[in-house]
Amino acid sequence: MAFHFQQALRALILLAFCGLIFYLHYTGDITKYINPKYIPLSKSASILFLFLFFIQITRIWSSKKEGESHGQHAGGACCHHVDDHDCSHHHDHGDTPFTVKKLFSYSIIIFPLLTGFYLPAATLDASIADKKGGLAVLGNKNNVNSNQADSTSVDENDDMEDYSIRDSLEDFEDSAEQEPPLYEEEQEVSKEEFEHLKKGLYSSSVIKMDDFVFSLYYEEISKDIERFKGRQIEFQGFVYKEEGLSSNQLVISRFLITHCVADASMIGFLSELEEAPELYENMWVKVKGVIDTATYNGTEMPLIKITGWEEIDEPFIPYLYPINVRIL
């Protein structure tokens, strides 16, 4: 029996990918990377890696005879050997000698495994909001409908009741301190439920933006600010400031994740309060206020006059995800 170092290394790497994905799911950190909607898909990737690992294990040891035929392969006589490869392709099977170039290739593949395991899952913060365009991209959500419909999903969600408007009108205090929501549930609602959610926005006395409805309400409000002027609103987010804001202004923002944090887009409200200088960037706050309008760079946008605020811990799931409306 001959031991093949590279085949063993490859097996180890496959196992490590499986392990990394599993680890992120296990710790719950996965929601800091991707939209929970893709959790099942990501889990299947982990299982596939495990499956490939078992297949790869069989290649670590080989009998002497096979070892020789691999030698032939490297020697270019591959068309005649009876090994399992035909030779219309010459990619690396992990049988050729281990060179510096290969060391480099394997280092690249191992790199994300190391950083994924050892670096903590950061939450995107105000500096990213700034890079993404800051307030300038907030003014123009008028035409944006961030409700993604997934035509391929037809599964019924039995827990839809949990997402009823009753829930979103629950005491705001509760929703903030609640256990992390069942993030494995897809944020998916039927057309009627979606309309129902929207109605809640118009009929409730105070607009309470919990994480589930945040992006929906945010859009509705941005679309027709005048209609909401004077209404009371409660929401939470992190503090973002940028040049050009006056000293009593700041933006209370959230990131909306469609697939993964790489496609995060920032949403949030320009807010005004006297104590604004006391609020530092990236601080998480829960605020109450009254909706007003403001003009920024020629675009009309909502402005929240803050009437009360308190500092809170960063939520376990800091991001928002678009609500999916089933259209089938």
């Binding site: 994905i21 800091k32 990501s42 994300p112 950083t115 994924g116 670096l119 993964c260 944090v261």
Partner: peptide, 17 residues
């Protein structure tokens, strides 16, 4: 660097399947 890493890993996690 932590922000960079989280975006980097998230692209990979999303792309790997």
């Amino acid at each position: 660097i932590l922000n960079l890493n989280v975006i980097f890993i998230s692209i990979l996690i999303e792309a790997l399947p």
